[in-house]
Design a protein around this nucleic acid. Structure first.
Lengths: 154, 154
DNA sequence: ACACGATAGACAACCTGGTTCACTATTTAG
DNA sequence: CTAAATAGTGAACCAGGTTGTCTATCGTGT
């Protein structure tokens, strides 16, 4: 169809939508006491989860090398968002766990995302937004955490 | 509403949608003789356009420093996608122009994006896809080129 | 006519977040 | 009890950003 939007608009809009939400999230997070937090950090902390994880496991979850995962954990540790504790049952392993500050950042992020979603719902209507989410779910992989961030742009 | 999807699913799905398209594009581009091309390269070449540009102008368009734009042009030049020619009317300037190979990559990308969009249209229906595009247009900035890639993830 | 400010490009040093290779310590399996 | 697998770490490297500095050229105001 000659009056379809050009094909390249779709990926661009998806990316801009993502960017719009992420930028708004971090502007608000900065206001709420987490100015040093970077977009990566939220994803990584989400992947670490309440139960904690290890560098190797985290790397697998995120689709990056264990060394890269380790470096990111270093940064998060330096910022006070996570801590490493030795696993008493396997002294090779170090469990990476969220600190109270890390948990605070995560719960605030969740609330802010809800608010941002509500903002979109107000603009588009709840029904259209649900349709948008359903459609995206239909054309994207199920496993939401294998972002493979490293490969995607470089 | 308690049965809304969690707020964090929306940005994730947007990103995954973007990733899905970009990965498919580059898998196909690799098959069609452009295996070294990276996602950035397509955006940058699109920004360079048919008329050519300069490093400073390109930096402004992409929202990065002129030095960063210059480095990216270095890479593109090394890969044979662009060439630099002196501007005879202002010998300070070097015009960055697409080579035939760069143009080939761009026209192939456009065609592949159309095919990918058609794939989504087949899954979702043309009407739903148009609605999705319209909704994204409504919640994202108009200027599609100011991606500000540098700031978005770091 | 010319001096001076603005602009274009390039180079260096640095940062972040990836990569691979190599190594040690520990656990597990044969 | 030895050998293989696994967890973590360090080093060297890369890409693509940043800022600061420098030179060459252009354009303007006196």
């Amino acid at each position: 169809m000659s009056n379809d939007p050009p094909g390249f608009e779709l990926p661009l809009r998806l990316f801009l939508g993502f960017r719009t939400l992420i930028d708004a999230l971090h502007a608000e997070l900065a206001r709420q006491g987490h100015p040093e937090m970077r977009p990566m950090h939220g994803f990584v902390m989400q992947a670490i989860g309440m139960r904690g994880t290890t560098a190797v496991e985290l790397g697998r979850t995120l689709g990056v090398s264990k060394q890269a995962a380790g470096k990111t954990v270093d940064t998060l540790e330096r910022l006070g968002y996570v801590e490493r504790v030795r696993d008493p049952y396997d002294t090779r392993r170090k469990i990476v766990r969220l600190t109270p500050r890390g948990l605070d950042a995560l719960t605030r992020s969740a609330r802010i995302f809800e608010e941002l979603r509500a903002g979109w719902a107000a603009k588009l209507g709840e029904e259209r937004l649900r349709a948008l989410e359903a459609d995206l779910r239909a054309v994207t992989p199920q496993d939401v955490f294998r972002l493979d961030v490293p490969g995607w742009f470089g």
